[in-house]
Amino acid sequence: MRIVVIAIGRLKQGPERELADRYRERFEEIGRKLGFRGLEIHEIAESRARDAATRMTEEATAIAAAIPEKSVLVTLDERGENVDSAAFSRYLARWRDGGTNNAIFAIGGADGLSPELRRRASLTIAFGAATWPHQMVRVMLFEQLYRAATILAGHPYHRA
């Protein structure tokens, strides 16, 4: 199963990018042995529309256009479900073992994701009730993907 993160906005050079790259590389190394075909990132430019509703709609259209057929869509949103790391790893394993071709993780821009896109998702998750900058959400998602892979591999990284 291929894992694709579709994110609004670019992650510029700096500590967030370095940390995201580190977790992405770690995931890819252990993930290949577990049947994951890589971790791709598709960055989509932020909409320049004047109002938030139009920006969210334009960004949702761009995200939807990047989602391949036979994919599971997971949206990241502060109103989502709080999923612990073990449960997150079980979702990944279930999708992989069930023949899902792609697990798509969508991260919205400053205005968040459109309600229509969130309704389309198989799962909406939150990293707590706080609102996080989308750059940090990307880093936290990559870390959780790596952590999930270590759980599935029986690696000691995850201690719970």
Rank of each mutant, 00 (worst) to 15 (best):
A126G: 09
R138H: 09
A87N: 13
T100Q: 06
S114K: 13
E143R: 08
D97T: 05
S85H: 14
A103F: 04
D84Y: 13
F88M: 10
R138T: 09
A149Y: 00
R147A: 02
L113I: 11
E116N: 03
T131E: 08
G109F: 06
G80K: 07
I104A: 07
A93R: 14
A153K: 12
T100K: 09
D77A: 03
G80W: 02
R138N: 07
Q144R: 11
L152D: 01
G109Y: 00
D77G: 02
V139L: 15
N102D: 14
A148H: 06
L123W: 06
A130Y: 13
T150S: 14
F127S: 05
R79A: 15
G98Q: 11
G108A: 06
E143G: 10
A149C: 02
A148D: 05
E78K: 14
H134M: 09
G80Q: 07
I107F: 03
A103Q: 11
S122Q: 15
T100N: 06
L117D: 04
R119D: 13
G99S: 04
N101D: 15
A93C: 11
M140R: 00
Q144G: 02
T150M: 11
V139I: 12
A110V: 08
W132Q: 10
A149K: 00
N82A: 15
L145E: 06
D97M: 02
G112T: 01
I104L: 04
L141Y: 05
S89G: 09
Q144C: 03
A121T: 11
I151Y: 07
G108N: 06
A153F: 00
R138Q: 09
L145C: 08
L145V: 11
R118T: 11
L113S: 08
R79Q: 13
L73W: 01
M136P: 08
P115G: 07
L145W: 04
I125E: 05
E81T: 14
D97S: 10
G98M: 10
T131S: 12
R120S: 15
N102T: 12
A129S: 15
S85I: 14
G154K: 06
P133L: 09
T75P: 04
E116I: 03
A106G: 08
A129W: 09
G80A: 06
A93H: 13
A110Q: 08
R96L: 09
A86L: 15
V83E: 05
A148K: 03
H134P: 11
A110T: 10
A148M: 07
V137Y: 03
F88H: 01
N102R: 07
A110P: 04
F105K: 05
R94D: 15
A148E: 07
A86E: 15
L113R: 10
R90D: 11
G128W: 06
D97Y: 08
M140A: 00
V74Q: 10
T124S: 13
E81G: 01
L73V: 12
